[in-house]
Design a protein around this nucleic acid. Structure first.
Length: 795
RNA sequence: GGAGGUAUAGUCUAGUGGUAGGAUGACAGAUUGACAUUCUGUAGGCAGGAGUUCAAUUCUCCUUACCUCCACCA
């Protein structure tokens, strides 16, 4: 088939995509006898915000998938979408300028469900266009009933093995919007405030910005290193106005330099209060209610700010105030309305795992980490864990707990596994409360933490509880791919769940990608306005060229996006295209044969070296080093070897035809994981008909063809001679350039050092033909090519 | 504040205990029997300081800057 004179990615990539889909090239066959290679990829959060950073890390896994497929594995490569979480909620709230609270739970959920597919399509289309070789029939979504079922099943199993419990815990709460909020909805804000120095008993002075919380004071803290206050530890101090006594405890979270170095802990004024409450098992005194009003009798239902004014006045009147200062400090406010966040106490579900820290570290070590140092982050995270995993979220759009509570005694009732997935707002439990016999129930209103579900991706992919054949085939998965900032969440929680459910590590290998940065090396953030969208570049240069950029740094390193890098990619693609055209035009007819030419041995030897190197690097997930090796051979092949054998090509020498096709086919194969479209097009045009002649199977697609194997060995001695020949030819080329001669002009005579006569004496014709040299002789060379190689040249 | 990472030509990136490789841009030249989205060549670089060593860009420590995660001032 004659090739088009120009390669147009816009036309070809669309055509190839359709071909892949029609022929189901990437279909996973559950019944295949081949060894399975299963990949656990991150389901991107559907937030409407796709940028080149995503493309960067996702395609890195893609290279591996394609490599493993060519190595003969049955590759299980599913894709997922994480669309059940808060980002999706916020996306829809923003689009319709509404909130879940305004619309009401059921209406809101319906709206999200109806809208989210629009965004799903954006993601899927982009990944398809990028050439992601997933089996799209394996696509999962975290809002789907199947995934909810897996997630609820996991919860029930954890409950069965006594790994869940319910406990009162603080929830973030916005007193203005009267809603619970999540951590990602917070932002820092500098606020002007007053800090009041209060006189407690025993000569203790405490500085506080929240005097209204005084009735909720449950303890007093000092730093253990603080010499000034060492004597206080263990004493009981009396709280002003309210007169109750609280203990003094030493804790390193206290900054001895701030205020007076003595802190009161009120449940709950801020994050530290919560930590202390948990760490020291302190009494709980909640004095702010869900409407943002004080419910302590002292305040008689005042709002927070009014309460502050009242108590300050009261404290002043009674002489407890020593001084007040104006300060500016950072506080957490609700992103949407700027109101200072308060804490509420709600009963929430936890997964008990604090007793297993050592086990988790050990499991982390059983996984192979690429790059290895990334494991340290997991270790640090696990070792620093201070409490169990809270999996309740006071939001709307997510996986429901399969739980109801008895209306009269609050006893939890769990759903039956065979009824999953359940919606506790719609479905009801069967029978009566096992504790009190009541028949009335209320649903759990919280939803599960998004990590409680996404930590189950191996189980979701394994169709756990639906078609366990999958789980048997793919678990533990061969590879997890993810970015580094979520090691402590996604990677860790997946290890936790796999341990509880399967007593196993979830995957054998984990590959951690870096971030794609903007052109100035800054991370892409919406708020910075430096988010680079892929679409324009995809349109302009095609997916192959864009993938060239994503493969241009080592695994785990960040890489800044440079359009020029994409241009470099498209030049390589263009060169590859034209090289193939040249070979096809001149050497379409070749026969397998042994070549007597030194240059042929040289390029075959180099090919073998490259295959070996690329294979090794790919096996350790170092796609970039593999690419580098292949790229180097590619340029040697086209700029050096091909130029030196051109006269043989024009002379229709069939032995050069065979070598050209043999090397080029392997080059195409080795480049195909990186630039899958153009290599497929070349394969379909040229190599599919010659595949068998070149020692490969004739497969439908290059991507299901075999990874190259090393060719017949070239003796070291023969390669050494060939390598010297190449160096001499390169030297002559440079000499021509320095003497302002055309590269195809004639050289009268070259004299090669006599000591090389043994090695090169039989290759006179090759030397002549390689650089258009009229006469070659051996004798004394006056120019040094390199140590041991000397020549003289007559122009 | 804690943990981890990074620092290499104008720019983007490899790599090494002993002459630092590639891309891109710059400059010079060649070419029209595949390719001007070509080819050949030239110039240009290891953040700063201390230490270990015969030898440090590489190993150790410190400083500075940036990135990620965690914590965050009562």
């Amino acid at each position: 088939m004659p090739m088009e004179s120009r390669y147009d990615p816009k036309v070809v990539e669309g055509k190839i995509l359709k071909f892949w889909e029609d022929e189901q090239i990437y279909k996973f066959d559950i019944d295949s006898e081949k060894e399975v290679y299963s990949i656990d990829t991150p389901p991107p959060t559907v937030s409407g915000d796709i940028h080149l950073g995503h493309v960067f890390s996702y395609t890195q896994a893609e290279f591996i998938a394609r490599y493993k497929r060519m190595r003969g594995f049955s590759v299980f490569y599913p894709f997922g979408l994480d669309n059940n979480g808060l980002p999706t909620e916020l996306l829809i709230e923003k689009k319709f300028d509404t909130t879940a609270e305004k619309l009401g739970r059921e209406k809101f959920i319906e709206l999200v469900r109806n809208e989210v597919h629009i965004y799903n399509e954006l993601y899927i289309n982009l990944w398809k266009k990028m050439g992601v070789s997933s089996d799209w029939s394996l696509l999962y979504q975290t809002i789907s009933p199947q995934v909810q079922k897996v997630s609820q099943k996991s919860f029930l199993e954890l409950n069965k093995i006594n790994r869940t419990y319910r406990k009162e815990a603080p929830a973030l709460f916005c007193p203005k919007d009267k809603t619970t909020v999540s951590q990602v909805e917070l932002k820092d804000k500098m606020l002007k405030s007053k800090i009041i120095y209060l006189n407690f008993s025993d000569g203790v002075t405490i500085a506080t910005t929240r005097p209204e919380l005084l009735p909720a004071c449950v303890a007093i803290f000092v730093n253990p290193e603080d010499v000034k206050h060492k004597g206080l530890v263990g004493k009981e101090i009396t709280v002003p106005i309210f007169g109750n006594k609280v203990k003094v405890i030493a804790d390193k979270r206290v900054d001895p330099e701030f205020g007076t170095g003595v802190v009161m802990c009120c449940t709950f004024g801020d994050q530290t209060d919560i930590e202390w409450y948990k760490a020291y098992n302190l009494e709980l005194k909640m004095i702010i209610d869900e409407r943002g009003k004080m419910n302590h009798p002292y305040y008689n239902g005042l709002k927070i700010k009014e309460a502050r004014e009242k108590i300050i006045q009261d404290l002043k009147d009674k002489g407890f105030v020593i001084k007040e200062e104006n300060i500016e400090h950072n506080v957490n406010v609700h992103d949407r309305c700027g109101t200072e966040i308060e804490f509420l106490v709600k009963k929430q579900w936890y997964v008990r795992y604090l007793d297993l820290k050592e086990k988790f570290v050990e499991l982390g070590k059983q996984v192979n980490w690429y790059p290895p140092h990334m494991r340290v982050r997991l270790d640090n995270w696990i070792n620093g864990l201070q409490w169990d995993w809270s999996i309740s979220r006071q939001r709307f759009f997510g996986v429901y707990f399969p739980v109801w509570y008895c209306k009269s005694c609050d006893e939890p009732i769990f759903a039956d596994e065979k009824d999953l997935p359940v919606n506790p707002f719609v479905d009801s439990p069967k029978g009566k409360c096992g504790k009190c016999g009541s028949g009335e129930f209320v649903p759990e209103t919280d939803i599960m933490d998004t990590w409680a579900t996404s930590s189950l991706t191996p189980f979701i992919n394994g169709k756990w509880g639906t078609d366990d054949r999958y789980l048997k085939k793919i678990f533990p998965m061969s590879l997890r791919v993810q970015a580094h900032e979520i090691i402590s969440f996604w990677a860790f929680n997946t290890i936790v769940k796999s341990y509880f459910h399967m007593n196993s590590i979830p995957w054998k290998n984990i590959m951690i990608s870096g971030h794609g940065l903007d052109a100035h090396g800054k991370p892409m953030h919406k708020s910075e306005g430096n988010v680079v969208k892929p679409d324009g570049y995809l349109e302009k240069y095609g997916a192959d060229a864009l993938r060239f950029w994503t493969s241009s740094s080592v695994l785990g390193e960040d890489n800044s996006f440079q359009e020029k890098e994409v241009v470099t990619g498209s030049r390589l693609i263009n060169k590859l295209w034209n090289l193939t055209r040249f070979v096809e035009m001149n050497s379409a007819n070749f026969e397998k044969q042994k070549s007597e030419f030194l240059l042929d041995s040289w390029i075959i030897y180099r090919l073998n070296e490259t295959i070996k190197k690329a294979t090794e690097e790919f096996d350790s997930y170092d796609y970039f080093k593999a690419r580098n090796a292949v790229e180097r051979l590619f340029w040697e092949f086209t700029n050096d070897y091909l130029e030196f054998v051109k006269n043989r090509v024009y002379g229709k020498d069939t032995s050069v035809g065979y070598t050209l096709n043999l090397v080029l086919f392997d080059l195409i194969k080795m480049l195909s994981p990186f630039i899958p479209f153009v290599t497929e097009e070349i394969y379909q045009n040229v190599f599919i008909s010659n595949a068998e002649k070149l020692g490969s199977e004739k497969t439908k697609s290059i991507h299901t063809n075999s990874w190259p194997e090393e060719k017949e060995m070239v003796e070291e001695k023969r390669f050494d001679a060939a390598d010297k020949l190449v160096k001499i030819l390169l030297f002559v080329r440079k000499w021509k350039h320095e003497n302002k001669m055309a590269l195809n002009s004639d050289i009268t005579e070259i004299t090669i050092g006599k000591d090389l006569e043994g090695a090169l004496g039989g290759a006179i014709e090759e030397i002549k033909s390689g650089m258009n040299i009229k006469n070659v002789k051996f004798g004394d060379g006056d120019l040094e090519v390199e140590e041991g190689i000397r020549v003289s040249i007559k122009g």
